[in-house]
Nucleic acid binder design. Structure first.
Lengths: 198, 198
DNA sequence: CAATATTTTGATTGTGCAATCAATATTTTA
DNA sequence: TAAAATATTGATTGCACAATCAAAATATTG
């Protein structure tokens, strides 16, 4: 049977509460007590469903990464050509940030604080080749495909422009002020990137 | 007299130890006990020179921001034209990251965890116009100057490309793995950015 | 050198937290 | 419906920490 419905529902409820609490008080001040209170549940229940605090945080991280990847790759697969896929990728990333702001904040809080078994922070983890962020991989594939199909120039280095694009997207995540227009940034960023790759 | 030499030296020593400890254990696990131990000093001494833990963290943040700004603007002012200034800016940012890796890690740890008086995290702070990051301002000025002098195209939006450039620089900060070449990235990034602005 | 000011120590106090667990409630199974 | 399995509670324990402070050491001054 593996997993009861109740257990699965509770787990998701607690993960949601973890996300809410992370967004509200930040990683340094997040506690099982606060998460439990927000979920209207006892602290012991969290320990019952998760082996410890880190297990909850790690599961929340996986949950957030999956949601984001699903949304973005869902948009990209609807497109045919590398150019429209690249455009869809950028649009989807920015759209997700706007529509799921809370999720992105929770993701940042975790990514910049959680560390792996060896005590190395996630954001400093030197994954090398394997175990790479699937969102990153998706972008790389679009660019490689575009070069192979001669739709993109082969003057640029895929690895390098990936870093630029990801950085340009993530930087805007932190620009949630009244004067900054995501709509405008979306258009400008697409224009700038296409100027490089075409 | 204001400040004794001993007090000033101690403060700097403790700030250095704070940076080292942040790099080693990360923000969530940094404690006055660990900082004191690393500085080979008693915990009480930190309390004597800093009003509390947050005071030490804030002073460390100011120290790190100042060092970085000094280095970058020092390189930029040596150049004459907007193009060479922009190139120098990118080169300086990347060079600083490589040469002062520890400082950048400490900076990230603080920026993504510390919050202002109202409890709003630094990285989410909506500074609007005033109180902007001087490094950001420097970049903006180079780009505006370049447009005014007709050395750069006026087809792009300064605010937008600033976000792109900063993001592209900061993203590479996290790419400290063997396969990633900063030298190559530096050249490629300059090429890509110039393609947009010229 | 003596008096005063500054610097430094380390033990102590109080707080918030993660994790545990026995007791209780609820659901599932036969 | 009775027995067994699962889910939930909240009080308790023990730990790590920030902050405090009286005492001691060191430096400065006249």
């Amino acid at each position: 049977m593996g997993e009861s419905f109740i257990a699965e529902a509770r787990r998701e409820q607690i993960i949601q509460s973890c996300i809410d609490t992370l967004e509200e008080v930040g990683y340094t001040k997040v506690s099982l007590t606060k998460i439990a209170k927000k979920a209207k549940v006892s602290t012991g229940l969290i320990s019952y469903h998760f082996s410890d605090k880190m297990d909850l945080i790690n599961q929340t991280l996986l949950y957030l990464l999956e949601k984001k990847l699903d949304f973005i790759s869902g948009k990209v697969v609807q497109e045919e050509t590398p150019t429209s896929q690249l455009t869809a990728y950028i649009e989807a990333c920015l759209a997700y940030q706007v529509a799921n702001f809370k999720y992105n904040i929770a993701l940042i809080e975790i990514v910049f604080n959680v560390e792996n078994e060896e005590g190395i922070p996630f954001y400093r983890a030197d994954n090398g080749e394997e175990d790479e962020d699937p969102i990153y991989t998706l972008l790389k594939e679009i660019l490689l495909d575009g070069q192979q199909k001669k739709e993109f120039s082969n003057q640029f280095d895929v690895e390098m422009i990936c870093v630029l694009i990801q950085g340009a997207i993530e930087e805007s995540m932190l620009k949630h002020n009244k004067t900054f227009s995501f709509e405008k940034y979306k258009n400008e960023l697409i224009k700038m990137v296409l100027k490089i790759v075409i």
